[in-house]
């Protein structure tokens, strides 16, 4: 039996909304330590990795007697989650050898209980081994700032060059009709930590990425006030949104490399 009771349905709603356009079908891997989801987009350029830890405060109850994989169509899941109020407590439930995933939405005042079942799918997806590595550069910034940068630069071109150096980080785009550049200086003196821009640098990195994917990742902006970008030359960028009281959502994007 698997049963996870999440205090805030809005968190799951935001997660699924941010994933469903790039990753339409995905396996939720449930174990006693929590829920993980890893999925590649259909062009095999981007990867998402979600981790919701069972021992964090976001779960009121969590039970998983044996490891199970729940193959779900995320577009359908998003439709079901739209039936939940933002303040509803949401319970996910499945049997040990499940064909069905059950969603139960309890309203805050306890007056309304809704139950929805969806059919699970057999999804044949290849799990990739993502190594824990030190990155040459880790940039932390307000998530809305990163969203704005991606959205602004995507007006002019398809790829952005991210240039991390000790003073800060530069984002540059060069298209057929024009070019643009946004310089972000390191700023760790502002009062609120979530408004800071910080750059941890071991080695300078200059790398190009497809803006289409970065813009898609920023659909997760409402999950977190901050986002971190981890870069190493000639390896995928990691865009991480922490999820308070649960874990994190990471996106990996393969670089564009001179061939």
């Amino acid at each position: 039996m698997f049963e996870a009771k999440m205090l805030q349905s809005s968190v799951l709603k935001k997660i699924i909304e941010s994933l469903k356009d790039l990753f339409s079908d995905a396996n939720f891997d449930c174990s006693s330590s929590g829920i993980t989801l890893q999925d590649m987009d259909s062009s095999h350029v981007a990867l998402c990795y979600l981790k919701l830890r069972s021992d964090e405060e976001g779960f009121e109850d969590y039970r998983c007697d044996r490891n199970i994989t729940l193959g779900v169509n995320l577009v359908l899941m998003s439709k079901i989650l739209k039936c939940a109020g933002n303040d509803d407590v949401i319970t996910l439930r499945a049997e040990d050898e499940p064909n069905i995933l059950t969603f139960i939405f309890d309203s805050k005042n306890g007056e309304r209980v809704s139950k929805y079942d969806i059919k699970l799918m057999e999804i044949d997806s290849e799990l990739l081994g993502i190594p824990d590595t030190e990155y040459s550069c880790v940039v932390k910034m307000p998530s809305h700032e990163f969203q704005r940068i991606c959205s602004n630069l995507s007006q002019l071109g398809d790829s952005v060059t991210v240039d991390c150096h000790k003073e800060g980080v530069d984002f540059k785009v060069a298209g057929e009709q024009g070019s643009g550049a946004i310089k972000l200086k390191q700023n760790t003196t502002v009062d609120k930590e979530e408004d800071q821009v910080s750059v941890e640098l071991n080695e300078a990195v200059t790398q190009s990425f497809a803006l289409k994917f970065l813009c898609a990742f920023t659909k997760a902006t409402s999950l977190s006030d901050t986002v971190s970008l981890s870069l190493t030359q000639d390896t995928p960028i990691v865009v991480e949104y922490p999820i308070a009281q649960h874990g994190y959502l990471r996106f990996y994007l393969a670089p564009k490399i001179e061939e």
């Binding site: 590649m40 095999h44 350029v45 799990l127 995928p236 994007l253 393969a254 564009k256 001179e258 061939e259």
Partner: peptide
């Protein structure tokens, strides 16, 4: 010529 890399070429298959 800049080419888009594939994500799986960076991570070994688990």
């Amino acid at each position: 010529m800049i080419g888009q890399q594939k994500i799986y070429s960076f991570f070994r298959v688990a």
